[in-house]
Design a binder for these strands. Sequence first.
RNA 1: GGGAGUUUAGCUCAGCUGGUUCAGAGCAUCUGCCUUACAAGCAGAGGGUCACUGGUUCGAACCCAGUAACUCCCACCA
Length: 903
Amino acid sequence: MNSTLRSAYTIQYLSSRPIRYYMEVPKTYDPSQVEDKWYKYWMEHNFFKSVPDEREPYTIVIPPPNVTGVLHMGHMLNNTIQDILIRRARMLGKNACWVPGTDHASIATEAKVVHMLRERGIKKSDLSRENFLKYAWEWKEKYGGIILDQLKKLGASCDWSRTSFTMDKGYYNDVINVFIDLYNKGYIYRGLRMVNWDPVAKTAVSDEEVIFKQINSKLVYVKYKYEEGDGYLTVATVRPETIMGDVAVAVHPDDERYKHLHGKNVIVPLVNRAVPVIPDEAIDKEFGTGCLKVTPAHDTVDYEIGVRNNLPVIDTLNEDGTISEAGQVFIGMDRFAARKAALKKLEEDGLIEKMEDYSHQVGHSERTDAVIEPRLSMQWFLKMKDISKPALDAVMNGEVNIIPNKFINTYKHWMDNVRDWCLSRQLWWGQRIPAWYAPNGECVVAKTEEEAISKFEIQNSKFNIGDLKQDDDVLDTWASSWLWPISVFDGMENPDNADIKYYYPTNDLITAPEILFFWVARMIIAGYEYRGEKPFTNVYLTGIVRDKLGRKMSKSLGNSPNPLELITKYSADGVRVGMLLCSPAGNDLPFDEAHCEQGRNFANKIWNAFRLIKGWTTDDSETSQKNQIAIDWFAAKLSAEIENINDLYSKYRISEALMASYKLMWDDFCAWYLEMIKPEFIDGKPQPIDNYTYYSTIEFLEELLKVLHPFMPFITEELWHLIGERDDKDCIMVSEWPAAITQDKELLTRFDALMDSIVQVRAVRNERNISPKDALELYIRIPENPVSKSFEPLMMKLCNLSAIHYTNEKVENAASFISSNIEFFVPLAGRINVEAEKEKLQKDLEYNEGFLKSVQSKLANERFVANAKPEVVDSERKKLADAEAKIKAIEEQLTSLRKSLTS
RNA sequence: GGGAGUUUAGCUCAGCUGGUUCAGAGCAUCUGCCUUACAAGCAGAGGGUCACUGGUUCGAACCCAGUAACUCCCACCA
């Protein structure tokens, strides 16, 4: 042991508190009382709170869950990772600040509220905007906090005093101000756009809320007669009810079949309108007849063709999906009834050439299951090209890291092809767009009607309060959450306040890859636009939680376990460990409850290690340091693993950090170290343990608990306090992260060899069914590399040996093995089965001969010797020598066995 | 249709710059143990043509090309 180590692990213990003794401690760990107790304790002592100070800040802003949300497995994973990072940062002495909050989630929440009202017999259309919002706020106050309370069960150490909501007054204002600012900078414009219209709910829905289903329908081939002369053109369509809105027939410019018709007119059936045949690149020559009827009002592609070719738009549908006046025929009829009617009329007119069965994807509304109608409407847009430039650069030049970095490509691809952002939503729940319309339809952007009026005055229009009408739409939810890292610190309204200056830019953002564009990219954009700086340094993308069958966990599939029930069953610590055991960054997480069980078992293991230690009595007069070697070894092992774990954290390999901590605790500490130092029983009485070993062990346990604390906050805190009396604020969650204090590679290597020989002796015992109670003898062959004397007691204890002998000779009637070039013999007396031993040795011999051969041929290869690095060649030479020695030993052993056979 | 990714033990994954006995870990499985902390445990063992085919190299799980299967994102054909 070197002197640094001695001071760290032995001098300290003198001031350690004596362990408390408990007469009865349950054999299995019972977390039920523990977890709530410590969460409350931490809260009461304000351990989660953060205020700017002179320390280095470490900040995470939570991806705000929807207010409508209940905790699902995705949240569990996300927030467990965040909590691990925050807790470790806190222990590293940083000023850790984790800002929680919720997102108003305009569409999801509005749908929830509408549903709730419907159950009470109230229709949204019967309510004024103000009344509806009153209900919505009531709903939010009542249910909006549920998810945050659930996070507390998980152990999330958020600074709850900083809880934010994207519709808080200040936040709301920030969103509105940003809209006005971007409008004034010329980034925002108003334009027509196809939206996904839900004719049942009478609202637009976002792309994410459209579910495509495979539907069987009929592809109808309809004749469009030439305006002049005989003949016709055939158009294939699945939507004959939109024929009335046709304004052209498009063909591919290179399609020889139709070149002669470019610019000529054809007659639209049902309404007898003459429309031109136009060439357009978008047409697939192979599909149907190669002719497309162009209906700009009711199809996205058609709309784009219409724009390119300056075609008029005829909207033949009302907002409830019935045919409008503009349709001229079937007015007031539902779109599906109209489809039948149109088919019948076309049939009568002899305009149907043929019909084919056709299967295709049709969008349905997630909420109402109605078939989505593409519908043209006026929307607000944000020009993305210029404003997103710094956000692309930041990721490409590494100012913002994306982990794992495979997502950088995806990010770049999206940013390179970024499309303008449709900001408006036809909903009430959200930030209402600050645009004001005069009766003639003219529009200005302003915060209040007064401001709007004065803006109109500049344009020489005079209005009074009440003359103007505010835009009915609200902003897309992401148009508020993109300000999250700034607004939660009040950095929009007060850009120089102490909080934002201290905490911004934040450190790590933990979120799911599916919102890389919706949210992450836009936060980076907003960060550069409004702070001139990135919002966070690292983006850690978690995987998607899936069930065992590989399906995404979702409410509709009903395949998601209830996280709170899991916590009840396995404890929060157990579930945290279970989630992390199988989730490397960016990989999907195939969730299996068995992992939580493993987590629970691990907690129990820790608990029992504690039980063992607390059961010991110490003997003050005992001064022997017989466990010195074990203590030195574990100190070195602990230090090496702490370095390893720190390294894994720095690479965000959190699962691996957990696995390393797990093995350190279970294998190295429990299975090896504790077994080495465990006092023996004499005459049925446990012997006392010497003070030195005892307090060193306590120190080790404390260090281990600290390493495990970020993963398992509750049990580690519980044991921290059971180990000894602590004052109020002496909690593991605010303790110091362990430092690696020693480096003794050589000792670790020697122990690896020791452990290997121990395992081999145990295998000898196991393979021959020798009871662990029967003591064995062990012979070690000298002259080379005798086992260090200091290891002898460990071997004797861990293998249950009665004696260790050194010999120059082979040992007859013994099992043998070679470990680290040392030959070992375990005499088996009457237990030996010579044939079986022979067979074993023979197999071993074959393996080693094969290995030797491969090494020999490698070394015989001149080009290998010439080209390979010298150290590689050297190591091959060493392998060669080792293998030869081994083979020699095995052969000797075989010879002696044959002798015993014949004798 | 465009883009990205994955494929290593029954399952989930490591394997870094091609070279250490390199083919690993955890779980699961099997065998033996209720050994005075823990059966939610202990001791030990078995298990893989590194998706496939070819190439580069003294040497390939790793680099290159092609093939196959799966996953995700974006856009969607009337």
